[in-house]
C-alpha cells in the first residue's frame, strides 16, 4: 500500500500542507495553543499535553508496526532522524527551557500565532532570532553538533530485546504515565485550592 505517493512526487508538498493544517488544527482543538496548558506539565497542574503526545506516540507506534507486519507499509521508507548523543541531550534541555519560559513548543507557537495570540507572535520572533544566532554561531560548536553520531539508533536494539517486547513495555509505561499524571494533577490541584 504505502507509500501513497512516491518520494519524488511534487504532490509531496501538497500532502505536507494538508498534514500540516490538520496538525495545527488538532493542536488548537486540543487546547495546545494555550501556554498555561503547556507550562502546566512542568508545574504539575495539567498533564493533558503529555497524555495527548503519549496517546499519539503509542497509536502511531502500534499502527506502523501492524502496517509493516501485514506488508501494507514498507518501514524502510520511513525516515528516522539520525541520533547524536551529546547534541540530543543539550538540544533537549534547551528546548525544555524554552518550553517552560515561553509556554509554547515551536509547533504550538505557530498555531497560537495563527489564532492571534500576541505572546505567540513574540515567541515566533524569538524562534526566528534564535535560529539566526544559531546559524551565525554554528562554526563555534560545529564539532560538538555533529559529534557522537549513531545513525539510525533503535532503543530496542541497544537493549537487546525484540521490537514487539519493547512495544509492550512502552505501552505499559504509557499507561503508568496516564495514571501517575492523574494522581499528581489531583494532588497539585488540592494544594492550589488550599491557598
Amino acid at each position: 500500500m504505502g507509500p501513497i505517493f512516491s518520494t519524488a512526487s511534487e504532490w509531496n508538498y501538497v500532502i505536507a500542507l494538508i498534514i500540516g493544517i490538520a496538525f495545527g488544527y488538532i493542536l488548537e482543538a486540543a487546547g495546545f495553543s494555550t501556554s498555561r496548558k503547556l507550562a502546566g506539565v512542568f508545574y504539575g497542574y495539567d498533564f493533558v499535553v503529555l497524555r495527548v503526545f503519549f496517546t499519539a506516540a503509542l497509536t502511531a507506534m502500534l499502527g506502523l508496526a501492524f502496517f509493516g507486519y501485514f506488508g501494507w507499509l514498507d518501514l524502510d521508507n520511513i525516515y528516522i532522524n539520525p541520533y547524536y548523543i551529546g547534541p540530543a541531550i543539550v538540544g533537549g534541555a534547551v528546548m525544555g527551557l524554552g518550553f517552560i519560559i515561553g509556554g509554547f513548543c515551536p509547533g504550538t507557537s505557530v498555531s497560537a500565532a495563527a489564532i492571534g495570540k500576541v505572546d505567540a507572535w513574540f515567541f515566533l520572533g524569538g524562534v526566528l532570532l534564535g535560529a539566526l544566532i544559531f546559524d551565525l554561531a554554528y562554526p563555534l560548536y560545529k564539532d560538538f553538533f555533529t559529534g557522537g553520531a549513531r545513525g539510525k539508533a533503535m532503543i530496542y536494539e541497544d537493549l537487546g530485546m525484540g521490537k514487539e517486547w519493547f512495544m509492550l513495555v512502552f505501552v505499559i509505561f504509557g499507561i503508568i504515565a496516564f495514571a501517575a499524571t492523574a494522581i499528581i494533577q489531583r494532588k497539585v490541584a488540592k494544594r492550589v485550592n488550599k491557598y
Binding site: L58, T59, L62, A65, F66, Y69, E164, W165, M167, L168, F170, V171, I172, G174, I175
Partner: peptide
Amino acid sequence: LLGLALWYA
C-alpha cells in the same frame, strides 16, 4: 493499546 501490543507480541 495494551490489547494491540499483546496481540502484536
